[in-house]
């Protein structure tokens, strides 16, 4: 038994719990953010600084902080932004980035169109084999990508030789691959969002003169907008960050950024600073996208539709 005087009051317990959960979250956050910090920091360093035997956590010595606070312009002298200039000339970074955007955006568009229609059907319709098809969709996510890489490569070869449709190293080829594994996720995610929209809203739209498709487009999809944004972002990131399939099936003119930055590491030298500068530049728009779409997702547009 704990003596009476040592027992925590309920308020103290809450406070302690709060403190502990913040500490755990803080650790996780540090874990997630440190690589990004390191990426940005490295992008501003010279080769000597990067390859130093004792890498510094900060871009400057602790003694320099007061001077920097007094005159922030000093930072420009300490940080080396040359990498951001030289990286463009060394490799076609911009092309890589544009390739990634084309591939990720098109994949997202396909996944959302199919995902919305499929997710809606799963959520609101009953049809024979619904459980089996739903299970099969989920099962596709349980197969490691590496297992279907070789069959996919052979399939592409077959299509190229038999049907004479170029597949390897084409936009449509890699988009096709990404669509196959993002569509099931999109259907499952969107189904969950459609489930939260009451049937009566769609029924109201049908009574108001809509066909089922009109009700979907004019009423249900706007209500599911936060879910569609979240799903779209997820799919976009999967397609933007994918390395395995891209490394085999998308090179040459369609090389995406995730593969392209590897060229900074050549047989003789690794241009770490420029690689990190390119990565920083590529991360920025994605981060911006998150910031823009975060609000509607958190806000929850469905509020106030029906009285529960």
């Amino acid at each position: 038994m704990i003596p009476e005087e040592l027992r925590l009051t309920p308020a103290a317990k809450d406070g302690l719990f709060d403190l502990l959960s913040r500490a755990v979250l803080g650790c996780l956050l540090l874990f997630a953010l440190f690589p990004i910090y390191w990426m940005v920091l490295t992008s501003f360093r010279t080769r000597t600084e990067i390859t130093a035997a004792d890498p510094q956590l900060l871009p400057f010595a602790l003694e320099e902080i007061p001077a920097i606070v007094r005159d922030p312009a000093l930072l420009l002298e300490i940080l080396h932004y040359e990498n951001y200039i030289t990286m463009w000339g060394r490799f076609p970074v911009l092309d890589y980035f544009i390739n990634s955007l084309i591939i990720a955006t098109t994949t997202t568009a396909f996944a959302l169109v199919v995902g919305c229609l499929g997710g809606y059907a799963f959520s609101k319709y009953g049809f024979p084999g619904k459980g089996a098809v739903g299970g099969a969709l989920l099962a596709t996510q349980m197969i490691p990508g590496i297992l279907i890489l070789l069959p996919m490569y052979l399939l592409f070869l077959w299509v190229q030789t038999t049907l004479e449709i170029p597949m390897i190293d084409t936009y449509h080829g890699i988009i096709f691959v990404y669509t196959t594994f993002t569509v099931p996720v999109a259907i499952w995610m969107l189904r969950g969002f459609f489930d939260t929209i009451p049937d009566s809203v769609e029924e109201a739209a049908r009574v108001d003169g809509c066909s089922r498709l009109q009700a979907l487009v004019r009423v249900i999809l706007p209500m599911a907008a936060p879910g569609i944004a979240a799903t779209g972002m997820f799919v976009f990131l999967v397609a933007f960050n994918e390395v395995l399939f891209a490394s085999i099936l998308a090179s040459g003119d369609v090389t995406p950024f995730a593969i392209g930055i590897q060229s900074f590491e050549t047989q003789t030298t690794a241009y770490w600073g420029e690689m990190m500068a390119a990565s920083t530049v590529a991360t920025a728009p994605i981060l911006l996208l998150f910031v823009i779409f975060q609000k509607p997702i958190v806000e929850g547009l469905t509020e106030g539709s029906v009285k529960q």
Binding site: P198, V207, V219, S305, V306, K307
Partner: peptide, 29 residues
């Protein structure tokens, strides 16, 4: 189909369209 019947319905949970104003809700039909 419901849209061919010239009916109007009031639902228990109201089923208003949340992304439309009251005016747009009423005008939609």
């Amino acid at each position: 189909k419901p849209k061919e019947r010239d009916i109007a319905m009031v639902f228990q949970n109201y089923a208003l369209y949340p992304h439309m104003t009251a005016r747009e809700n009423m005008a939609f039909g």
